[in-house]
Simulated assay, not measured.
Amino acid sequence: MHKNVEDLPLTETTFYILIALNSPLHGYAIMQEVENLSNGNVKIAAGTMYGAIEHLLKLKWIKSVPSNDKRRKVYSITEKGIKILKLETNRLKGLVLLAKKMGYDKGV
């Protein structure tokens, strides 16, 4: 068993935040990017966003990076965060493959 398996599954919010940090962003920009990436299906409230950022910083899945804008903190995904994101992506792929195998990938 992989040592990071206990960190899985990720919440939808965490997954989207990590994906959004493909390039460095500040908190509000992350919220906008998540909404964009999810085609408007996922909207993260400010309180949820900043709580999630604090948690991800503690886990060292993201880090604060230098910014020209002194009013905003900018964040970037770390190597550890990328590793977790890849593990979760592979876990989700396995679920999709199973659903296809069982015939549940047909239209509703």
Rank of each mutant, 00 (worst) to 15 (best):
K73H: 15
K73N: 15
K73A: 15
V74E: 02
Y75A: 10
Y75W: 14
Y75S: 11
Y75L: 13
Y75D: 09
S76D: 11
S76K: 07
S76I: 05
I77T: 04
I77W: 04
I77P: 03
I77F: 05
T78C: 13
T78H: 11
T78S: 13
E79W: 11
E79T: 13
E79P: 05
E79L: 14
K80A: 07
K80F: 03
G81Q: 04
G81V: 06
G81P: 05
I82K: 12
I82F: 11
I82W: 10
K83S: 11
K83Y: 11
K83T: 08
K83N: 08
I84N: 08
I84E: 09
I84C: 13
L85I: 12
L85A: 13
L85F: 15
L85V: 12
K86H: 14
K86Q: 15
L87I: 01
L87F: 02
L87H: 01
E88K: 05
E88C: 07
E88V: 06
T89V: 04
T89A: 09
N90K: 12
N90D: 11
N90Y: 11
N90F: 12
N90W: 09
R91T: 00
R91L: 05
R91S: 01
L92V: 07
L92T: 03
L92K: 07
K93R: 09
K93P: 01
K93D: 04
K93M: 09
G94V: 13
G94E: 15
G94P: 09
G94C: 13
L95E: 08
L95Y: 07
V96H: 01
V96I: 06
V96Y: 02
L97C: 00
L97E: 01
L98P: 00
L98R: 03
L98W: 02
L98K: 04
L98F: 04
A99Q: 00
A99S: 00
A99M: 02
A99D: 00
A99N: 00
K100D: 14
K100P: 06
K100H: 14
K100Q: 14
K100N: 14
K101H: 08
K101W: 07
M102F: 10
M102W: 07
M102N: 06
M102E: 10
M102G: 02
M102S: 06
M102Y: 08
M102V: 07
M102T: 03
M102D: 04
G103C: 14
G103F: 15
G103L: 15
G103A: 15
Y104A: 12
Y104F: 15
Y104T: 05
Y104N: 12
Y104I: 11
Y104D: 11
D105Y: 06
D105Q: 05
D105N: 08
K106C: 07
K106Y: 10
K106N: 08
K106Q: 12
